[in-house]
Protein backbone atom coordinates (compact mmCIF):
# COMPACT_ATOMS: atom_id res chain seq x y z
CA UNK A 1 0.00 0.00 0.00
CA UNK A 2 1.50 3.33 -1.05
CA UNK A 3 2.36 5.87 1.61
CA UNK A 4 0.93 9.35 1.42
CA UNK A 5 3.05 12.49 1.41
CA UNK A 6 1.64 15.99 1.77
CA UNK A 7 3.36 18.33 -0.71
CA UNK A 8 3.25 22.03 0.11
CA UNK A 9 4.95 24.19 -2.54
CA UNK A 10 3.76 27.43 -4.14
CA UNK A 11 5.98 27.51 -7.20
CA UNK A 12 3.79 25.52 -9.57
CA UNK A 13 6.59 24.28 -11.80
CA UNK A 14 8.49 22.89 -8.83
CA UNK A 15 5.29 21.46 -7.31
CA UNK A 16 4.51 19.75 -10.60
CA UNK A 17 8.01 18.35 -10.83
CA UNK A 18 8.08 17.04 -7.26
CA UNK A 19 4.62 15.52 -7.61
CA UNK A 20 5.71 13.50 -10.63
CA UNK A 21 8.99 12.54 -9.01
CA UNK A 22 7.26 11.29 -5.85
CA UNK A 23 4.61 9.40 -7.83
CA UNK A 24 7.32 7.69 -9.87
CA UNK A 25 8.87 6.49 -6.64
CA UNK A 26 5.66 4.98 -5.35
CA UNK A 27 4.30 7.80 -3.23
CA UNK A 28 0.71 8.91 -3.13
CA UNK A 29 0.77 12.72 -3.23
CA UNK A 30 -1.62 14.76 -1.15
CA UNK A 31 -1.76 18.20 -2.77
CA UNK A 32 0.28 19.92 -3.97
CA UNK A 33 -0.95 22.81 -1.84
CA UNK A 34 0.21 26.28 -2.84
CA UNK A 35 -1.18 28.08 0.21
CA UNK A 36 -1.44 27.60 3.96
CA UNK A 37 -5.24 27.44 3.75
CA UNK A 38 -5.16 24.77 1.01
CA UNK A 39 -2.77 22.68 3.06
CA UNK A 40 -4.83 23.00 6.24
CA UNK A 41 -7.96 22.02 4.32
CA UNK A 42 -6.24 18.87 3.01
CA UNK A 43 -5.08 18.02 6.53
CA UNK A 44 -8.61 18.25 7.87
CA UNK A 45 -9.63 15.13 5.94
CA UNK A 46 -6.45 13.10 5.72
CA UNK A 47 -3.37 12.30 7.74
CA UNK A 48 -0.30 11.76 5.54
CA UNK A 49 2.67 9.64 6.61
CA UNK A 50 5.03 12.55 6.10
CA UNK A 51 5.12 16.03 4.56
CA UNK A 52 7.39 18.23 2.43
CA UNK A 53 7.07 21.91 3.20
CA UNK A 54 8.17 25.02 1.38
CA UNK A 55 8.59 27.81 3.92
CA UNK A 56 7.14 30.90 2.26
CA UNK A 57 3.80 30.41 0.56
CA UNK A 58 1.52 32.78 -1.29
CA UNK A 59 -0.50 33.55 1.82
CA UNK A 60 2.34 33.64 4.33
CA UNK A 61 4.77 31.45 6.25
CA UNK A 62 4.08 27.70 6.41
CA UNK A 63 4.07 27.82 10.26
CA UNK A 64 0.36 26.95 10.82
CA UNK A 65 0.78 23.87 8.59
CA UNK A 66 3.85 22.76 10.52
CA UNK A 67 1.96 23.22 13.79
CA UNK A 68 -1.00 21.21 12.51
CA UNK A 69 1.38 18.43 11.47
CA UNK A 70 3.11 18.48 14.83
CA UNK A 71 -0.27 18.19 16.58
CA UNK A 72 -1.06 15.13 14.45
CA UNK A 73 2.42 13.66 15.01
CA UNK A 74 3.19 13.78 11.29
CA UNK A 75 6.92 14.25 10.61
CA UNK A 76 7.95 16.76 7.95
CA UNK A 77 10.98 17.85 5.99
CA UNK A 78 11.56 21.35 4.62
CA UNK A 79 12.55 22.23 1.10
CA UNK A 80 13.51 25.86 1.30
CA UNK A 81 16.05 28.09 -0.37
CA UNK A 82 16.42 29.93 2.94
CA UNK A 83 19.43 28.86 4.94
CA UNK A 84 17.67 29.28 8.28
CA UNK A 85 13.97 28.57 7.68
CA UNK A 86 13.18 28.89 11.40
CA UNK A 87 13.99 32.60 11.15
CA UNK A 88 11.02 32.96 8.84
CA UNK A 89 8.73 30.22 10.01
CA UNK A 90 9.49 30.23 13.73
CA UNK A 91 10.47 27.64 16.32
CA UNK A 92 8.20 24.88 15.03
CA UNK A 93 10.57 24.49 12.06
CA UNK A 94 13.74 24.51 14.11
CA UNK A 95 14.30 20.77 14.42
CA UNK A 96 13.25 19.81 10.91
CA UNK A 97 15.68 18.74 8.19
CA UNK A 98 15.94 21.23 5.33
CA UNK A 99 16.82 19.40 2.11
CA UNK A 100 17.24 22.80 0.42
CA UNK A 101 16.26 24.02 -2.97
CA UNK A 102 16.93 22.87 -5.59
CA UNK A 103 16.90 19.30 -4.26
CA UNK A 104 17.90 16.12 -6.06
CA UNK A 105 15.66 13.08 -6.02
CA UNK A 106 17.86 10.93 -3.80
CA UNK A 107 18.27 13.55 -1.07
CA UNK A 108 14.54 14.20 -0.96
CA UNK A 109 13.47 10.56 -0.92
CA UNK A 110 16.14 9.71 1.66
CA UNK A 111 15.04 12.57 3.92
CA UNK A 112 11.40 11.43 3.75
CA UNK A 113 12.32 7.88 4.80
CA UNK A 114 14.57 9.23 7.53
CA UNK A 115 11.85 11.55 8.87
CA UNK A 116 9.34 8.69 9.08
CA UNK A 117 11.77 6.50 11.02
CA UNK A 118 12.60 9.10 13.65
Amino acid sequence: MPKTVLLVEDEFLIAMDLELLLQRHGWLVLGPAATVSQALLLLRNSVPAVAILDVTLKDGAVTPVAEALRDKNVPFVLSSAYEKPERIGGEVLAGAVNVGKPVDAQTLLGALEQAMRS
Binding site: M16, A81, K101, P102
Partner: peptide, 11 residues
Protein backbone atom coordinates in the same frame (compact mmCIF):
# COMPACT_ATOMS: atom_id res chain seq x y z
CA UNK B 1 15.54 34.02 -5.39
CA UNK B 2 18.58 32.63 -7.14
CA UNK B 3 18.13 29.23 -5.53
CA UNK B 4 14.47 29.30 -6.49
CA UNK B 5 15.47 29.99 -10.07
CA UNK B 6 17.94 27.10 -9.98
CA UNK B 7 15.09 24.91 -8.74
CA UNK B 8 12.90 26.07 -11.64
CA UNK B 9 15.59 25.24 -14.15
CA UNK B 10 16.07 21.86 -12.48
CA UNK B 11 12.32 21.21 -12.72
Amino acid sequence: RMKNLFALVQA
